[in-house]
Design a binder for these strands. Structure first.
Length: 308
RNA sequence: GGACAGGUGGCCGAGCGGUCAAUGGCAGCAGGCUGUAAACCUGCCGCUCCUUGCGAGCUACGGGGGUUCGAAUCCUCCCCUGUCCA
Protein backbone atom coordinates (compact mmCIF):
# COMPACT_ATOMS: atom_id res chain seq x y z
CA UNK A 1 0.00 0.00 0.00
CA UNK A 2 1.59 3.18 -1.13
CA UNK A 3 4.94 1.56 -1.69
CA UNK A 4 6.62 2.31 -4.88
CA UNK A 5 6.79 -0.31 -7.56
CA UNK A 6 9.93 0.93 -9.30
CA UNK A 7 13.15 -0.97 -9.04
CA UNK A 8 15.22 1.68 -7.25
CA UNK A 9 12.42 2.43 -4.90
CA UNK A 10 11.43 5.64 -3.27
CA UNK A 11 9.22 4.76 -0.37
CA UNK A 12 6.41 7.20 0.20
CA UNK A 13 4.25 6.50 3.16
CA UNK A 14 1.05 8.45 3.67
CA UNK A 15 0.54 8.82 7.40
CA UNK A 16 -2.65 10.85 7.65
CA UNK A 17 -5.33 12.43 5.52
CA UNK A 18 -7.47 15.45 6.21
CA UNK A 19 -11.19 14.78 6.19
CA UNK A 20 -12.23 18.05 4.67
CA UNK A 21 -9.51 18.76 2.14
CA UNK A 22 -7.12 16.73 0.06
CA UNK A 23 -4.27 17.48 2.41
CA UNK A 24 -2.23 14.57 3.68
CA UNK A 25 0.91 13.99 5.66
CA UNK A 26 3.52 11.48 4.74
CA UNK A 27 7.09 10.35 4.93
CA UNK A 28 9.46 10.18 2.03
CA UNK A 29 12.17 7.61 2.70
CA UNK A 30 15.37 8.43 0.85
CA UNK A 31 18.91 7.15 1.08
CA UNK A 32 19.92 10.26 2.96
CA UNK A 33 17.10 10.19 5.44
CA UNK A 34 13.39 10.65 5.82
CA UNK A 35 11.46 13.71 4.80
CA UNK A 36 8.19 14.58 6.44
CA UNK A 37 5.64 15.90 4.01
CA UNK A 38 4.22 18.36 3.26
CA UNK A 39 7.66 19.82 2.87
CA UNK A 40 9.16 23.07 1.67
CA UNK A 41 12.54 22.60 0.00
CA UNK A 42 14.93 25.56 0.08
CA UNK A 43 16.67 26.17 -3.21
CA UNK A 44 20.44 25.75 -3.39
CA UNK A 45 20.83 26.15 -7.12
CA UNK A 46 24.57 26.08 -7.56
CA UNK A 47 25.66 24.12 -4.53
CA UNK A 48 24.64 26.45 -1.74
CA UNK A 49 21.46 27.89 -0.32
CA UNK A 50 22.51 31.49 -0.76
CA UNK A 51 23.32 33.75 2.14
CA UNK A 52 23.06 30.98 4.72
CA UNK A 53 25.52 28.72 6.41
CA UNK A 54 24.72 25.03 6.43
CA UNK A 55 24.22 25.32 10.20
CA UNK A 56 21.66 28.07 9.75
CA UNK A 57 19.97 26.01 7.08
CA UNK A 58 19.67 23.10 9.48
CA UNK A 59 18.29 25.43 12.14
CA UNK A 60 15.41 26.33 9.86
CA UNK A 61 14.34 22.72 9.97
CA UNK A 62 15.02 22.14 6.29
CA UNK A 63 14.95 18.42 5.54
CA UNK A 64 15.67 18.40 1.83
CA UNK A 65 17.05 21.02 -0.52
CA UNK A 66 17.33 21.60 -4.24
CA UNK A 67 20.26 21.73 -6.60
CA UNK A 68 20.16 22.65 -10.26
CA UNK A 69 21.53 20.55 -13.06
CA UNK A 70 22.14 23.38 -15.51
CA UNK A 71 23.97 25.55 -13.01
CA UNK A 72 26.03 22.77 -11.48
CA UNK A 73 26.99 21.51 -14.94
CA UNK A 74 28.17 24.98 -15.93
CA UNK A 75 30.15 25.34 -12.74
CA UNK A 76 31.85 23.38 -11.33
CA UNK A 77 30.68 20.60 -13.68
CA UNK A 78 28.89 17.36 -12.87
CA UNK A 79 32.02 15.27 -13.36
CA UNK A 80 33.94 17.37 -10.90
CA UNK A 81 31.16 17.06 -8.36
CA UNK A 82 31.19 13.31 -8.86
CA UNK A 83 34.96 13.22 -8.38
CA UNK A 84 34.60 15.19 -5.19
CA UNK A 85 32.21 12.63 -3.80
CA UNK A 86 28.83 13.81 -4.98
CA UNK A 87 26.72 16.84 -4.29
CA UNK A 88 26.03 15.92 -0.67
CA UNK A 89 29.70 15.96 0.17
CA UNK A 90 30.42 18.85 -2.17
CA UNK A 91 28.06 21.11 -0.29
CA UNK A 92 28.27 19.44 3.10
CA UNK A 93 24.60 18.60 3.19
CA UNK A 94 24.14 15.06 4.47
CA UNK A 95 20.37 15.13 4.06
CA UNK A 96 18.26 14.51 0.96
CA UNK A 97 18.76 16.52 -2.20
CA UNK A 98 16.49 16.93 -5.19
CA UNK A 99 17.98 18.26 -8.41
CA UNK A 100 16.02 20.12 -10.99
CA UNK A 101 16.68 19.07 -14.54
CA UNK A 102 17.27 22.43 -16.16
CA UNK A 103 13.78 22.53 -17.63
CA UNK A 104 13.12 25.82 -15.91
CA UNK A 105 16.22 27.26 -17.55
CA UNK A 106 14.61 26.52 -20.91
CA UNK A 107 12.33 29.39 -20.00
CA UNK A 108 14.47 31.61 -17.81
CA UNK A 109 17.46 31.44 -20.17
CA UNK A 110 15.49 31.24 -23.37
CA UNK A 111 17.64 33.96 -24.90
CA UNK A 112 20.61 31.64 -24.51
CA UNK A 113 18.88 28.41 -25.44
CA UNK A 114 17.37 26.61 -28.37
CA UNK A 115 14.89 23.77 -28.01
CA UNK A 116 14.97 20.89 -30.46
CA UNK A 117 13.24 17.52 -30.48
CA UNK A 118 16.41 15.94 -29.24
CA UNK A 119 17.05 18.33 -26.36
CA UNK A 120 18.12 21.87 -25.54
CA UNK A 121 21.20 23.81 -26.58
CA UNK A 122 22.32 26.38 -24.05
CA UNK A 123 24.99 28.97 -24.41
CA UNK A 124 26.53 29.17 -20.97
CA UNK A 125 25.51 32.35 -19.20
CA UNK A 126 29.05 32.35 -17.77
CA UNK A 127 31.24 32.13 -20.84
CA UNK A 128 28.97 31.61 -23.83
CA UNK A 129 30.19 28.08 -24.55
CA UNK A 130 27.55 25.78 -26.07
CA UNK A 131 26.16 22.89 -24.04
CA UNK A 132 23.60 20.30 -24.98
CA UNK A 133 21.07 18.88 -22.55
CA UNK A 134 19.01 15.91 -23.65
CA UNK A 135 16.54 13.92 -21.55
CA UNK A 136 19.21 11.22 -21.37
CA UNK A 137 22.22 13.40 -20.59
CA UNK A 138 20.27 15.18 -17.90
CA UNK A 139 19.68 11.80 -16.23
CA UNK A 140 23.38 11.15 -16.44
CA UNK A 141 24.26 14.54 -14.99
CA UNK A 142 21.88 14.21 -12.08
CA UNK A 143 23.03 10.68 -11.33
CA UNK A 144 26.60 11.94 -11.34
CA UNK A 145 25.64 14.64 -8.88
CA UNK A 146 24.22 11.91 -6.68
CA UNK A 147 20.85 13.49 -5.96
CA UNK A 148 18.21 11.48 -4.12
CA UNK A 149 15.42 12.73 -6.33
CA UNK A 150 16.02 13.71 -9.91
CA UNK A 151 13.70 15.34 -12.40
CA UNK A 152 12.99 14.59 -16.02
CA UNK A 153 13.89 17.23 -18.56
CA UNK A 154 10.78 19.22 -19.41
CA UNK A 155 10.02 22.34 -21.34
CA UNK A 156 8.71 25.10 -19.13
CA UNK A 157 7.11 27.88 -21.14
CA UNK A 158 6.20 31.49 -20.42
CA UNK A 159 2.88 32.80 -19.28
CA UNK A 160 1.00 33.63 -21.33
CA UNK A 161 1.62 31.20 -24.16
CA UNK A 162 -0.60 30.31 -27.08
CA UNK A 163 -2.53 27.06 -27.10
CA UNK A 164 -0.24 25.85 -29.88
CA UNK A 165 2.85 26.56 -27.84
CA UNK A 166 1.41 24.88 -24.77
CA UNK A 167 0.34 21.87 -26.78
CA UNK A 168 3.75 21.57 -28.34
CA UNK A 169 5.49 21.81 -24.97
CA UNK A 170 3.14 19.24 -23.41
CA UNK A 171 3.80 16.78 -26.21
CA UNK A 172 7.54 17.39 -26.19
CA UNK A 173 7.68 17.14 -22.41
CA UNK A 174 5.80 13.85 -22.69
CA UNK A 175 8.22 12.38 -25.20
CA UNK A 176 11.14 13.59 -23.14
CA UNK A 177 9.61 12.04 -20.03
CA UNK A 178 9.39 8.71 -21.78
CA UNK A 179 13.01 8.92 -22.87
CA UNK A 180 14.10 10.00 -19.40
CA UNK A 181 12.31 7.10 -17.80
CA UNK A 182 13.77 4.60 -20.23
CA UNK A 183 17.30 5.87 -19.83
CA UNK A 184 16.96 6.05 -16.07
CA UNK A 185 15.67 2.50 -15.82
CA UNK A 186 18.56 1.18 -17.88
CA UNK A 187 21.39 3.23 -16.46
CA UNK A 188 20.61 4.50 -12.98
CA UNK A 189 22.44 1.79 -11.10
CA UNK A 190 25.49 2.07 -13.33
CA UNK A 191 25.77 5.84 -13.28
CA UNK A 192 24.90 6.94 -9.82
CA UNK A 193 27.62 9.19 -8.57
CA UNK A 194 26.79 9.01 -4.92
CA UNK A 195 27.71 6.05 -2.81
CA UNK A 196 24.29 5.34 -1.42
CA UNK A 197 25.53 2.31 0.48
CA UNK A 198 27.90 4.59 2.33
CA UNK A 199 24.95 6.71 3.36
CA UNK A 200 23.59 3.67 5.13
CA UNK A 201 20.93 2.73 2.60
CA UNK A 202 21.43 -0.10 0.24
CA UNK A 203 17.80 -0.54 -0.66
CA UNK A 204 17.09 2.97 -1.79
CA UNK A 205 18.81 4.71 -4.65
CA UNK A 206 17.97 7.79 -6.66
CA UNK A 207 14.39 8.15 -7.79
CA UNK A 208 12.91 9.87 -10.77
CA UNK A 209 10.01 12.32 -10.86
CA UNK A 210 8.04 13.21 -13.97
CA UNK A 211 6.77 16.71 -14.69
CA UNK A 212 3.37 17.82 -15.91
CA UNK A 213 3.08 20.87 -18.17
CA UNK A 214 0.19 22.55 -19.95
CA UNK A 215 0.12 26.13 -18.71
CA UNK A 216 -3.38 27.23 -17.80
CA UNK A 217 -5.10 25.00 -20.32
CA UNK A 218 -7.28 22.48 -18.51
CA UNK A 219 -7.44 20.07 -21.40
CA UNK A 220 -3.70 20.03 -21.91
CA UNK A 221 -3.07 19.77 -18.19
CA UNK A 222 -5.31 16.74 -18.02
CA UNK A 223 -3.63 15.19 -21.03
CA UNK A 224 -0.18 15.84 -19.61
CA UNK A 225 -1.05 14.56 -16.13
CA UNK A 226 -2.52 11.34 -17.48
CA UNK A 227 0.36 10.78 -19.87
CA UNK A 228 3.05 11.38 -17.29
CA UNK A 229 1.11 9.40 -14.73
CA UNK A 230 0.82 6.39 -16.99
CA UNK A 231 4.56 6.36 -17.57
CA UNK A 232 4.97 5.52 -13.91
CA UNK A 233 7.30 7.74 -11.97
CA UNK A 234 8.14 7.69 -8.30
CA UNK A 235 6.74 11.14 -7.84
CA UNK A 236 4.96 13.73 -9.93
CA UNK A 237 5.69 17.38 -10.33
CA UNK A 238 3.39 20.11 -11.50
CA UNK A 239 5.56 22.44 -13.50
CA UNK A 240 4.94 25.56 -15.53
CA UNK A 241 2.99 27.37 -12.83
CA UNK A 242 3.91 30.42 -10.78
CA UNK A 243 5.30 31.94 -13.93
CA UNK A 244 3.07 35.00 -13.91
CA UNK A 245 -0.42 33.57 -14.21
CA UNK A 246 -3.23 34.86 -11.95
CA UNK A 247 -3.47 33.26 -8.52
CA UNK A 248 -6.78 31.69 -9.38
CA UNK A 249 -5.09 29.83 -12.21
CA UNK A 250 -2.25 28.70 -9.98
CA UNK A 251 -4.69 27.18 -7.51
CA UNK A 252 -7.16 26.04 -10.11
CA UNK A 253 -4.58 24.23 -12.22
CA UNK A 254 -2.93 22.70 -9.17
CA UNK A 255 -6.23 21.27 -8.01
CA UNK A 256 -7.11 20.15 -11.51
CA UNK A 257 -3.79 18.38 -12.12
CA UNK A 258 -3.54 16.86 -8.65
CA UNK A 259 -6.82 15.12 -9.35
CA UNK A 260 -5.29 13.19 -12.22
CA UNK A 261 -2.07 12.20 -10.50
CA UNK A 262 -1.64 8.87 -8.70
CA UNK A 263 -2.94 9.12 -5.18
CA UNK A 264 -0.17 7.08 -3.60
CA UNK A 265 2.77 9.04 -4.99
CA UNK A 266 4.24 12.36 -3.80
CA UNK A 267 3.09 15.46 -5.64
CA UNK A 268 5.50 18.31 -6.08
CA UNK A 269 4.40 21.79 -7.08
CA UNK A 270 7.48 23.36 -8.61
CA UNK A 271 8.47 26.91 -7.84
CA UNK A 272 5.76 27.64 -5.30
CA UNK A 273 5.59 29.78 -3.31
CA UNK A 274 4.41 32.30 -0.81
CA UNK A 275 3.31 31.15 2.64
CA UNK A 276 -0.31 31.47 1.55
CA UNK A 277 0.37 29.48 -1.61
CA UNK A 278 1.84 26.66 0.45
CA UNK A 279 -1.09 26.43 2.80
CA UNK A 280 -3.63 26.57 0.03
CA UNK A 281 -1.87 24.05 -2.17
CA UNK A 282 -1.32 21.58 0.66
CA UNK A 283 -5.09 21.55 0.93
CA UNK A 284 -5.23 20.67 -2.76
CA UNK A 285 -3.08 17.60 -2.18
CA UNK A 286 0.44 18.85 -2.80
CA UNK A 287 3.23 17.27 -0.76
CA UNK A 288 6.37 19.09 -1.85
CA UNK A 289 7.28 22.66 -2.72
CA UNK A 290 10.32 24.69 -3.56
CA UNK A 291 10.74 28.37 -4.17
CA UNK A 292 13.56 30.88 -4.36
CA UNK A 293 11.39 33.59 -2.91
CA UNK A 294 12.27 33.26 0.77
CA UNK A 295 16.02 33.25 0.21
CA UNK A 296 15.90 35.83 -2.54
CA UNK A 297 13.63 38.13 -0.61
CA UNK A 298 15.79 37.79 2.46
CA UNK A 299 18.86 38.75 0.43
CA UNK A 300 16.96 41.60 -1.15
CA UNK A 301 15.90 43.01 2.17
CA UNK A 302 12.25 42.04 2.09
CA UNK A 303 10.26 39.85 4.36
CA UNK A 304 6.94 38.17 3.74
CA UNK A 305 4.03 40.23 4.93
CA UNK A 306 0.64 39.07 6.02
CA UNK A 307 -0.64 39.93 2.56
CA UNK A 308 1.95 37.57 1.15
C1' G B 1 60.85 70.83 13.02
C1' G B 2 61.20 69.09 7.54
C1' A B 3 59.08 66.58 2.92
C1' C B 4 55.15 64.96 0.50
C1' A B 5 49.78 63.63 0.10
C1' G B 6 45.01 65.05 1.44
C1' G B 7 40.31 67.66 3.48
C1' U B 8 33.73 67.23 -1.61
C1' G B 9 26.61 66.27 0.14
C1' G B 10 25.00 60.49 6.27
C1' C B 11 29.66 57.39 4.58
C1' C B 12 33.28 56.12 0.63
C1' G B 13 34.81 58.51 -3.61
C1' A B 14 34.99 61.30 -8.80
C1' G B 15 35.43 66.15 -10.60
C1' C B 16 40.31 70.13 -10.99
C1' G B 17 37.84 77.68 -14.42
C1' G B 18 31.78 77.95 -16.95
C1' U B 19 27.40 72.81 -19.63
C1' C B 20 28.01 71.42 -11.25
C1' A B 21 23.11 70.86 -6.71
C1' A B 22 28.13 68.37 -8.23
C1' U B 23 29.59 61.06 -11.96
C1' G B 24 29.81 56.38 -9.17
C1' G B 25 29.10 53.22 -5.06
C1' C B 26 27.16 52.46 -0.04
C1' A B 27 23.48 53.60 3.47
C1' G B 28 18.28 55.43 3.59
C1' C B 29 13.11 55.65 1.52
C1' A B 30 9.15 53.55 -1.95
C1' G B 31 8.00 49.52 -5.26
C1' G B 32 9.21 44.63 -7.43
C1' C B 33 10.93 39.51 -6.80
C1' U B 34 7.26 32.17 -7.03
C1' G B 35 11.58 24.71 -10.33
C1' U B 36 17.71 31.69 -8.97
C1' A B 37 21.98 34.81 -15.44
C1' A B 38 18.95 38.27 -8.89
C1' A B 39 23.09 40.04 -1.88
C1' C B 40 19.31 41.94 -8.03
C1' C B 41 15.92 45.42 -10.85
C1' U B 42 12.90 50.43 -10.96
C1' G B 43 12.11 55.19 -8.82
C1' C B 44 13.43 58.96 -4.97
C1' C B 45 17.48 60.75 -2.30
C1' G B 46 20.36 69.50 0.06
C1' C B 47 16.21 73.14 1.40
C1' U B 48 12.00 76.15 -0.20
C1' C B 49 8.43 77.75 -3.79
C1' C B 50 5.37 77.22 -7.93
C1' U B 51 2.58 77.96 -13.66
C1' U B 52 5.78 70.61 -11.83
C1' G B 53 9.71 72.53 -15.77
C1' C B 54 16.11 70.22 -19.47
C1' G B 55 11.46 75.82 -13.76
C1' A B 56 12.81 79.76 -9.89
C1' G B 57 15.33 81.07 -5.45
C1' C B 58 18.43 79.75 -1.45
C1' U B 59 22.37 76.95 0.90
C1' A B 60 26.72 73.67 -0.16
C1' C B 61 32.93 70.98 -1.98
C1' G B 62 37.67 72.44 5.90
C1' G B 63 37.88 78.23 7.39
C1' G B 64 39.16 83.44 6.05
C1' G B 65 40.80 86.58 2.22
C1' G B 66 41.88 87.19 -3.02
C1' U B 67 42.11 86.61 -8.71
C1' U B 68 38.09 86.26 -12.45
C1' C B 69 32.37 88.23 -16.05
C1' G B 70 32.34 83.29 -13.55
C1' A B 71 35.79 79.16 -8.45
C1' A B 72 34.69 72.57 -5.71
C1' U B 73 38.39 73.72 -9.40
C1' C B 74 43.60 79.17 -9.54
C1' C B 75 46.46 82.30 -5.57
C1' U B 76 47.19 83.25 -0.35
C1' C B 77 47.03 82.71 4.94
C1' C B 78 45.02 79.63 8.72
C1' C B 79 42.98 75.00 10.83
C1' C B 80 42.87 69.75 10.55
C1' U B 81 44.27 64.53 8.81
C1' G B 82 47.65 60.71 6.82
C1' U B 83 52.54 58.81 5.34
C1' C B 84 57.71 59.37 5.52
C1' C B 85 62.29 61.92 7.45
C1' A B 86 64.42 64.17 11.85
Amino acid sequence: MGWNKCAMGLKFEITARDENTRARTGILHTAHGDVETPIFMPVGTAGAVKAMTQAQLEETGAQIILGNTYHLCMRPGHERVRELGGLHRFMSWPHPILTDSGGFQVMSLKGLGKVTEDGVWFRSHLDGTPHFFSPESVMEFQLALGADIIMTLDECVDYPSSHETLKRSVRLTGRWAQRSKKYFAENAARLQGCDFAEAGQTEVGPSLFGIVQGGTDEGLRRESALEIGELGFEGYAIGGLSVGEPKDDLYGMTEHVAGFLPEDRPRYLMGVGTPEDLVRCVALGVDMFDCVMPTRNARNGCVFTREG
